[in-house]
Amino acid sequence: MGLRGRGASAVAYADGAARDGSGRDQGGNGRAGGTARPESRGRPRLGRLRRALLAVLIAGAVVVPLSAAARPRIPAPPPARLAPLSTVTLAGTYDANRADAAEASRMAAAHGDRKRAAVDRALASPSRDLLAFDGRGGGRVIEVLGDLTAAEHIAVLVPGSDTTLDTYARFRAGALALHRATGPRTAVVAWLGYDTPRMLSTAALTTGRAGQGARGLDRFVAELRAALGPAPDISLLCHSYGTVVCARAAATAEVQDIALVGSPGTGADSAAALHTRARVWAARGGGDWIADVPHVRTGLFGTAVGFGTDPVSPAYGARVFAAGGGGHSDYFAPGSVSLANLARIALGRTSEVTHA
């Protein structure tokens, strides 16, 4: 009982607003009449990076707790206890999670949060197929678009920071656009299966949340394999901080392809360091502000901050594909170069992927 075509809202990921590129380093070309030595260029750059990271850490330590404290936690029932996923239990799983979403909607409304109540109510619709639902806190949901049992290909979308139940509609819109681009032989899974970090927080600069997410993602892929067998090809299509999650799951998740879009880095120095047999792809839109984020890792207060090598750089060794001129929120925009290539990757039509 899979989802068929639904209407889509505007496509966007809640992983940061577009920037005008003014953060790009304009220096490093030396003074007029001479060439700066490499060490004189590198040290000021590292100093600027440390200061920028420190500023973000301070903002995360002060702003985020205050904003979180301003909104009380929303009550919701604990997740339903479900039978192991299989083709036989799938319908019961969908029913149980829709019932939980309906109860969460009632509880949120009684709590006075009409926005969350509306989100939960929409998820409780008979037209929605939920493999998991948890309405507590920021919330988690795993939704299937398409017929999971008949799919020859399964694409799992992994979101980045600031994706919660309250912003889930925007994430789902990208999944809907991909499902329409891949057709009926493909099931698309919108996998909000971890607590994503806030953009302006210390968590968005380290791999802690990614480690949590990777464990959940690995379990999910294993459940799909146990339920559906080895036949469906599974791809992980990972956005922004979600690329860090996918990188940490890569060594154990049994998938054919991993696509990294809008990545700040993955915490690994190269695609080879992911220790995966999957094909590793990477892309960045021409208007994506993530290009201006330093792709380095450095120690700060005893913690590794940053995610290292840029996945679209030759040093990383991924298969770099064309993403057009879009920004950080445009990778799944209908009609885009990026969406077309992501659809080809999901369908296993790798020879048709256009390269940057």
Rank of each mutant, 00 (worst) to 15 (best):
S263F: 06
V11T: 10
A333H: 11
G92F: 03
A101D: 02
L237F: 05
A190S: 15
R114G: 08
A210K: 01
T266S: 10
P314K: 10
M1K: 06
G324L: 08
T303H: 13
A12Y: 13
V189M: 00
R116H: 09
Q212N: 07
L66I: 15
P126I: 00
A187R: 05
V245I: 09
R4M: 08
G242L: 01
A132W: 08
A83V: 00
R24Y: 08
A204S: 15
A214Y: 01
R215D: 09
T164R: 15
A210C: 01
Y194C: 05
G7K: 04
S235I: 04
L274N: 04
V337E: 15
V188D: 08
A253R: 00
L192C: 07
R71A: 13
A17E: 15
D257P: 01
L157T: 09
A304I: 11
R51F: 13
A110T: 04
V337S: 11
L205C: 08
A155D: 13
Y194T: 03
R19N: 09
L200Y: 06
T196Q: 05
P65R: 11
M199R: 09
A323S: 09
G265D: 07
S270Q: 14
R37S: 12
L53S: 14
D129H: 13
D269N: 11
R71F: 13
R180Q: 14
A36N: 08
S86F: 05
C238R: 08
C238Q: 08
L342T: 02
V261Q: 09
R51W: 14
F133T: 00
D113R: 04
L342D: 04
V337L: 11
T163V: 14
A177C: 12
V245F: 05
A173Y: 06
D113W: 01
D195K: 10
G27Q: 01
